[in-house]
Amino acid sequence: MPASGIEVLFEGRNLVRLLGGLWTSLWIALSAMAVSVVLGLPMGVLMTSRHRLVKLVLRIYLEAIRVLPQLVLLFVFYFDLTLVTGVNLSGELAALIVFALWGTAEMGDLVRGAISAIPRHQYQSAAALGLRPTQVQFHVVLPQSARRLLPLAVNLVTRMIKTTSLIVLIGVVEVLKVGQQIIDRNRFDFPDAALWVYATIFLLYFLVCFPISRLAQALERKLDL
Protein backbone atom coordinates (compact mmCIF):
# COMPACT_ATOMS: atom_id res chain seq x y z
CA MET A 1 0.00 0.00 0.00
CA PRO A 2 1.48 3.33 -1.01
CA ALA A 3 2.19 5.84 1.71
CA SER A 4 -0.50 8.52 2.11
CA GLY A 5 2.13 11.20 2.54
CA ILE A 6 0.96 12.42 5.90
CA GLU A 7 4.11 11.05 7.49
CA VAL A 8 6.10 13.70 5.66
CA LEU A 9 4.74 16.26 8.10
CA PHE A 10 6.34 14.51 11.02
CA GLU A 11 9.60 13.75 9.34
CA GLY A 12 12.67 15.55 10.64
CA ARG A 13 11.89 19.15 11.54
CA ASN A 14 9.24 19.67 8.89
CA LEU A 15 6.46 20.77 11.24
CA VAL A 16 8.76 23.11 13.10
CA ARG A 17 9.93 24.53 9.76
CA LEU A 18 6.34 25.17 8.70
CA LEU A 19 5.67 26.98 11.95
CA GLY A 20 8.85 28.97 11.40
CA GLY A 21 7.55 29.96 7.96
CA LEU A 22 4.25 30.98 9.53
CA TRP A 23 6.14 33.11 12.00
CA THR A 24 7.88 34.90 9.12
CA SER A 25 4.47 35.70 7.59
CA LEU A 26 3.06 36.88 10.89
CA TRP A 27 6.10 38.89 11.80
CA ILE A 28 5.97 40.83 8.54
CA ALA A 29 2.20 41.30 8.66
CA LEU A 30 2.11 42.44 12.28
CA SER A 31 5.10 44.76 12.00
CA ALA A 32 3.60 46.31 8.88
CA MET A 33 0.30 46.69 10.72
CA ALA A 34 2.02 48.42 13.63
CA VAL A 35 3.60 50.89 11.23
CA SER A 36 0.26 51.31 9.45
CA VAL A 37 -1.56 52.18 12.66
CA VAL A 38 1.07 54.72 13.68
CA LEU A 39 1.12 56.41 10.26
CA GLY A 40 -2.50 55.75 9.27
CA LEU A 41 -4.04 57.59 12.23
CA PRO A 42 -2.54 60.99 11.43
CA MET A 43 -3.10 60.34 7.73
CA GLY A 44 -6.81 59.71 8.31
CA VAL A 45 -7.15 62.80 10.48
CA LEU A 46 -5.39 64.86 7.79
CA MET A 47 -7.71 63.42 5.13
CA THR A 48 -10.65 65.01 6.96
CA SER A 49 -8.92 68.38 7.21
CA ARG A 50 -10.13 71.37 5.26
CA HIS A 51 -6.78 71.75 3.56
CA ARG A 52 -7.45 71.02 -0.10
CA LEU A 53 -3.87 70.32 -1.14
CA VAL A 54 -3.21 67.98 1.77
CA LYS A 55 -6.39 66.10 0.97
CA LEU A 56 -5.48 65.84 -2.71
CA VAL A 57 -1.98 64.51 -2.07
CA LEU A 58 -3.23 61.90 0.38
CA ARG A 59 -6.05 60.92 -1.95
CA ILE A 60 -3.58 60.37 -4.80
CA TYR A 61 -1.39 58.29 -2.51
CA LEU A 62 -4.35 56.19 -1.41
CA GLU A 63 -5.68 55.62 -4.93
CA ALA A 64 -2.24 54.87 -6.34
CA ILE A 65 -1.63 52.21 -3.72
CA ARG A 66 -5.11 50.82 -4.22
CA VAL A 67 -5.04 50.41 -7.99
CA LEU A 68 -1.71 48.60 -7.93
CA PRO A 69 -1.83 44.90 -7.07
CA GLN A 70 0.32 44.21 -4.03
CA LEU A 71 2.40 41.87 -6.16
CA VAL A 72 3.37 44.70 -8.49
CA LEU A 73 4.40 46.81 -5.51
CA LEU A 74 6.50 43.95 -4.20
CA PHE A 75 8.27 43.59 -7.55
CA VAL A 76 8.84 47.33 -7.76
CA PHE A 77 10.51 47.46 -4.37
CA TYR A 78 12.40 44.20 -4.70
CA PHE A 79 13.60 44.29 -8.32
CA ASP A 80 13.10 47.75 -9.82
CA LEU A 81 14.45 49.66 -6.85
CA THR A 82 17.70 47.72 -7.10
CA LEU A 83 17.89 48.26 -10.85
CA VAL A 84 17.32 51.99 -10.59
CA THR A 85 19.13 52.95 -7.42
CA GLY A 86 21.38 50.01 -6.73
CA VAL A 87 19.92 49.70 -3.26
CA ASN A 88 19.54 46.06 -2.52
CA LEU A 89 16.71 45.33 -0.13
CA SER A 90 16.22 41.93 1.39
CA GLY A 91 12.95 40.25 0.50
CA GLU A 92 11.72 40.66 4.06
CA LEU A 93 12.48 44.35 4.16
CA ALA A 94 10.92 44.99 0.75
CA ALA A 95 7.83 43.10 1.90
CA LEU A 96 7.67 45.06 5.13
CA ILE A 97 7.91 48.37 3.27
CA VAL A 98 5.25 47.42 0.74
CA PHE A 99 2.86 46.16 3.39
CA ALA A 100 3.41 49.22 5.51
CA LEU A 101 2.72 51.51 2.53
CA TRP A 102 -0.42 49.58 1.66
CA GLY A 103 -1.56 49.29 5.28
CA THR A 104 -1.01 52.98 5.94
CA ALA A 105 -3.16 53.87 2.94
CA GLU A 106 -5.94 51.48 3.96
CA MET A 107 -5.73 52.46 7.60
CA GLY A 108 -5.81 56.13 6.70
CA ASP A 109 -8.94 55.58 4.68
CA LEU A 110 -10.56 53.62 7.52
CA VAL A 111 -9.74 56.43 9.95
CA ARG A 112 -11.10 58.98 7.51
CA GLY A 113 -14.29 56.96 7.13
CA ALA A 114 -14.70 56.54 10.88
CA ILE A 115 -14.29 60.26 11.49
CA SER A 116 -16.63 61.22 8.65
CA ALA A 117 -19.26 58.88 10.06
CA ILE A 118 -19.62 61.05 13.17
CA PRO A 119 -22.80 63.06 12.64
CA ARG A 120 -22.48 66.83 12.31
CA HIS A 121 -24.79 67.26 15.27
CA GLN A 122 -22.27 65.62 17.56
CA TYR A 123 -19.79 68.39 16.77
CA GLN A 124 -22.50 70.99 17.32
CA SER A 125 -23.74 69.60 20.57
CA ALA A 126 -20.17 69.52 21.86
CA ALA A 127 -19.56 73.05 20.62
CA ALA A 128 -22.80 74.20 22.25
CA LEU A 129 -21.36 73.19 25.61
CA GLY A 130 -18.46 75.53 24.99
CA LEU A 131 -15.87 72.94 23.95
CA ARG A 132 -13.22 74.37 21.67
CA PRO A 133 -12.60 72.64 18.30
CA THR A 134 -9.57 70.69 19.55
CA GLN A 135 -11.53 69.59 22.61
CA VAL A 136 -14.40 68.50 20.40
CA GLN A 137 -11.98 66.35 18.40
CA PHE A 138 -10.26 64.94 21.42
CA HIS A 139 -13.22 64.25 23.69
CA VAL A 140 -16.06 63.58 21.29
CA VAL A 141 -15.01 62.80 17.72
CA LEU A 142 -11.90 60.66 18.15
CA PRO A 143 -13.25 58.41 20.93
CA GLN A 144 -16.33 57.68 18.86
CA SER A 145 -14.25 57.16 15.72
CA ALA A 146 -12.01 54.72 17.56
CA ARG A 147 -14.99 52.56 18.37
CA ARG A 148 -16.01 52.41 14.74
CA LEU A 149 -12.44 51.90 13.68
CA LEU A 150 -11.37 49.03 15.92
CA PRO A 151 -13.25 46.16 14.21
CA LEU A 152 -12.27 47.44 10.77
CA ALA A 153 -8.61 47.66 11.76
CA VAL A 154 -8.68 44.13 13.12
CA ASN A 155 -10.09 42.97 9.80
CA LEU A 156 -7.23 44.68 8.03
CA VAL A 157 -4.83 42.54 10.06
CA THR A 158 -6.33 39.34 8.67
CA ARG A 159 -6.22 40.73 5.13
CA MET A 160 -2.55 41.49 5.62
CA ILE A 161 -1.72 38.08 6.99
CA LYS A 162 -3.39 36.43 4.03
CA THR A 163 -1.70 38.69 1.53
CA THR A 164 1.74 37.78 2.87
CA SER A 165 1.38 34.59 0.82
CA LEU A 166 2.50 36.73 -2.12
CA ILE A 167 5.94 37.41 -0.74
CA VAL A 168 7.07 33.93 -1.68
CA LEU A 169 7.41 35.45 -5.15
CA ILE A 170 10.20 37.78 -4.05
CA GLY A 171 12.06 34.93 -2.46
CA VAL A 172 10.99 35.26 1.16
CA VAL A 173 10.83 31.87 2.80
CA GLU A 174 7.47 32.08 4.55
CA VAL A 175 4.99 29.35 5.34
CA LEU A 176 4.00 28.67 1.73
CA LYS A 177 7.62 28.49 0.55
CA VAL A 178 8.55 26.10 3.34
CA GLY A 179 5.62 23.96 2.29
CA GLN A 180 6.78 23.90 -1.32
CA GLN A 181 10.30 22.97 -0.23
CA ILE A 182 8.95 20.05 1.78
CA ILE A 183 6.81 18.93 -1.13
CA ASP A 184 9.72 19.13 -3.59
CA ARG A 185 12.05 17.27 -1.28
CA ASN A 186 9.58 14.37 -1.05
CA ARG A 187 8.18 14.44 -4.59
CA PHE A 188 9.42 10.94 -5.47
CA ASP A 189 9.01 9.16 -2.17
CA PHE A 190 5.69 10.66 -1.22
CA PRO A 191 3.96 12.06 -4.32
CA ASP A 192 0.77 12.75 -2.34
CA ALA A 193 2.47 14.75 0.39
CA ALA A 194 1.37 17.99 -1.31
CA LEU A 195 -2.20 17.37 -0.17
CA TRP A 196 -1.18 17.10 3.47
CA VAL A 197 1.25 19.94 3.41
CA TYR A 198 -1.23 22.35 1.84
CA ALA A 199 -3.94 21.13 4.19
CA THR A 200 -1.63 21.92 7.09
CA ILE A 201 -0.92 25.38 5.72
CA PHE A 202 -4.64 25.93 5.33
CA LEU A 203 -5.15 24.91 8.90
CA LEU A 204 -2.38 27.21 10.11
CA TYR A 205 -3.85 30.23 8.32
CA PHE A 206 -7.25 29.32 9.67
CA LEU A 207 -5.98 28.99 13.23
CA VAL A 208 -4.45 32.44 13.03
CA CYS A 209 -7.08 34.33 11.08
CA PHE A 210 -10.29 32.84 12.44
CA PRO A 211 -9.84 34.05 16.02
CA ILE A 212 -8.84 37.47 14.75
CA SER A 213 -11.90 37.76 12.58
CA ARG A 214 -14.09 36.56 15.45
CA LEU A 215 -12.49 39.22 17.61
CA ALA A 216 -13.44 41.81 14.99
CA GLN A 217 -17.04 40.58 15.05
CA ALA A 218 -17.17 40.61 18.82
CA LEU A 219 -15.75 44.13 18.93
CA GLU A 220 -18.30 45.24 16.38
CA ARG A 221 -21.13 43.96 18.55
CA LYS A 222 -19.69 45.22 21.79
CA LEU A 223 -18.87 48.71 20.57
CA ASP A 224 -22.07 49.13 18.61
CA LEU A 225 -23.10 52.70 19.21
Binding site: H121, Q122, S125, A128, L131, Q144, L225
Partner: peptide
Protein backbone atom coordinates in the same frame (compact mmCIF):
# COMPACT_ATOMS: atom_id res chain seq x y z
CA UNK B 1 -27.47 76.45 26.68
CA UNK B 2 -28.82 74.72 23.60
CA UNK B 3 -30.90 71.54 23.59
CA UNK B 4 -31.42 69.79 20.27
CA UNK B 5 -34.37 67.98 18.79
CA UNK B 6 -32.47 64.69 18.66
CA UNK B 7 -30.86 64.99 22.12
CA UNK B 8 -27.34 64.55 20.71
CA UNK B 9 -25.98 62.95 23.82
CA UNK B 10 -22.46 61.59 23.44
CA UNK B 11 -22.95 57.85 22.85
CA UNK B 12 -19.49 56.87 24.08
CA UNK B 13 -20.02 58.44 27.51
CA UNK B 14 -22.32 57.43 30.33
CA UNK B 15 -25.09 59.73 31.42
CA UNK B 16 -22.78 61.07 34.12
CA UNK B 17 -19.95 61.40 31.60
CA UNK B 18 -22.23 63.45 29.37
CA UNK B 19 -23.11 65.73 32.24
CA UNK B 20 -19.53 66.19 33.40
CA UNK B 21 -17.79 66.76 30.08
CA UNK B 22 -18.60 70.47 29.86
CA UNK B 23 -17.96 71.40 33.50
CA UNK B 24 -14.69 69.43 33.70
CA UNK B 25 -13.17 70.27 30.32
CA UNK B 26 -14.55 73.72 29.66
Amino acid sequence: GLVFQNYELFPHLTVLGNLLLGPLKV
